[in-house]
Nucleic acid binder design. Structure first.
Length: 246
DNA sequence: AACCAGGACGTGA
DNA sequence: TCACGTCATGGT
């Protein structure tokens, strides 16, 4: 680790830290448990989630239940880069039809068929390459949990994808920062717009209990809240603003 | 008909 | 380090 200067762009007062936790409790009361990461098919799936047909499992944190589901989460994390989950779901279903949501099946799939299958998720040339790179890495892991640095060394895996894989596929408490997180926290003036990914991640992890369930739900709740209130500009008066004092 | 969607990478200051 | 262009399909 190299020495780093303190991020001047972040408020570090007690007020902002407690605000970050109260945001979580407010969102949880408002929207309920989110049941991420969505999986194609499993027992007890919940079909009533915004923007998706099936796959969520609120209150059940026992996923993934096997290596295949773990693999599916990883592939979904790559496919959802800058793409809505509805589109990713189409791609995942197409892959599943080809028996390519297993490591063995994916390894057999031709590049051309892979590209066609994931086309709905966009960037199919890049994402096909990313998936193939990840398959090599996943095989190399041989069931071991990767470190964040290992994940980041894989071509096509950036900070958010790495943290999503750690948090949802491996239950490692690593907070996921996405565009919605930055948008909401910035609008609430809890961060500067220019705050870096790692700055925001560090702030969240310092403010919250370092628990997988909290990180999973918080991230998913921010996404749900953003879909409700931050999809189109100008952003309206956030319901959180009147409720995060203390 | 622009604009956005659960980003990452390559490039040149 | 960082700002900017590129990648691509499909919703609203």
């Amino acid at each position: 680790m190299q020495a780093r200067s303190a991020p001047s762009s972040l408020p570090s007062s007690r007020y902002s830290r407690s605000s970050l936790y109260s945001i979580y409790t407010v969102l949880l009361k408002e929207y309920g448990m989110q049941g991420w990461w969505p999986l194609l098919a499993h027992q007890g799936m919940n079909p009533t989630k915004t923007g998706s047909i099936t796959g969520y499992h609120p209150g059940d944190y026992s996923f993934p239940k096997n290596e295949q589901q773990r693999f599916e989460i990883c592939i979904g994390a790559i496919l959802t880069q800058n793409t809505s989950w509805v589109q990713v779901e189409k791609a995942l279903k197409a892959l599943n039809q080809l028996n390519a949501l297993t490591i063995e099946g994916m390894a057999k799939l031709s590049l051309q068929r892979l590209k066609i299958a994931i086309k709905p998720a966009g960037y199919f040339n890049q994402k096909a390459k990313k998936i193939r790179e990840f398959v090599v890495f996943f095989t190399y892991l041989d069931g071991r949990t990767p470190s964040r640095e290992e994940l980041l060394s894989v071509w096509g895996v950036g900070p958010e994808t790495a943290d999503s894989i750690l948090l949802y596929a491996y239950h490692v408490p690593s907070f996921v920062v996405d565009a919605y997180t930055r948008r909401i926290l910035s609008h609430l003036r809890l961060i500067e717009e220019t705050a870096s990914y790692n700055d925001i991640k560090a702030m969240m992890e310092q403010a919250l209990p370092q628990e997988v369930v909290v990180y999973q739900e918080y991230h998913a709740l921010l996404v749900e809240h953003a879909k409700q209130q931050y999809s189109k500009k100008p952003y309206s008066q956030d319901i959180l603003l009147s409720r995060i004092h203390r």
